[in-house]
């Protein structure tokens, strides 16, 4: 057994919340730069603006986007690791300090039905825990904007619609969403499980390094097919029309009931903020 102090978790979350708010992952930045070259007109201007915005945010260490998100944390905890304190309190402590020190927007309502209930420190986070082998803790920190989360969906499909039905449903969602979730998107897709499992897996799909294909060849092929279909919609950067509606599609699968075909679609805006650290 290895003891891990809460402060180690809090400090790691603090650093990641700040870094992810100021700096886009290199893969995301590269994808934005590539999109400049394939677009014309207003869509090209949008992509140029986004690349310039990323430079300004990194240089001045200010928030890339004023929506600094509700922080989603995936904590992969080795089963030979002993937590010497409260995991959730440690995560929330790191977030609260980062959002104060980094001049990041506090966007969390304590009571979803009360507009005057902002918690004031952007906590609590949404925390998903997974137990893994070994004695390490790996934390993924992803500030998730409201605009793209609002355009996400879970749909319990009829199994008969099959693979093509899944592609069509994702295309329908992305088209309906238009410019609202700030495309170009990263599309997290989960197929299978139960309603709740699919929703969480679709978020987990967004934790993958941008553009890394699924290790399963069939799923990787599905990712390519969905990406092609989504980009054929012509929604384009900020919905203004163009070739780049999504930068990547990440698909996760899970076994499911014979009667079910759960599909979760989690849309991520182009500010695909994500940081990872192992303690």
């Amino acid at each position: 057994m290895r003891d891990v102090e809460p402060m180690a978790i809090s400090s790691a979350v603090y650093r990641m919340a700040l870094e992810s708010s100021f700096n886009l992952p290199e893969r995301v930045l590269d994808a934005l730069r590539r999109a400049v070259d394939v677009e014309v007109g207003p869509a090209r201007a949008v992509m140029e603006t986004l690349v310039e915005n990323a430079r300004i945010a990194a240089d001045r260490r200010i928030a890339l986007c004023q929506d600094c998100g509700l922080v989603v944390v995936f904590a992969e905890i080795g089963r030979e690791c002993h937590l010497a304190g409260d995991l959730y309190a440690a995560i929330n402590d790191g977030i609260a300090r980062a959002y104060a020190d980094g001049y990041l927007r506090k966007s969390v309502l304590g009571d979803p039905l009360r507009r005057d209930s902002n918690t004031g420190h952007n906590t609590p986070a949404v925390v998903h825990v997974r137990i893994t082998e070994g004695d390490a803790i790996t934390l993924h920190v992803a500030p998730k904007g409201g605009g793209s989360e609002n355009m996400s969906a879970v749909d319990m499909l009829v199994p008969a619609v099959g693979r093509q039905g899944v592609i069509d449903r994702v295309v329908k969602q992305v088209t309906f969403a238009g410019g609202k979730p700030c495309p170009p998107l990263v599309v997290g897709v989960a197929i299978g499980g139960t309603m709740d499992q699919a929703a969480v897996l679709s978020k987990w799909a967004l934790m993958r390094e941008l553009g890394d294909p699924s290790p399963d060849p069939e799923t990787a092929e599905l990712e390519r097919d969905i990406l092609r279909a989504v980009n054929a919609t012509g929604v384009g950067p900020m919905g203004l029309g163009g070739k780049t509606t999504a930068l990547a599609v990440h698909v996760e699968k899970y076994p499911c009931h014979i009667a079910s075909l759960p599909l979760a679609i989690n849309l991520q805006c182009h500010a695909a903020r994500h940081a990872m650290a192992t303690i």
Partner: peptide
């Protein structure tokens, strides 16, 4: 009018 979503750092200038 639409401004570029996610370009908050640039627009703040």
């Amino acid at each position: 009018l639409v401004a570029v979503g996610g370009a908050g750092a640039l627009l703040s200038e």
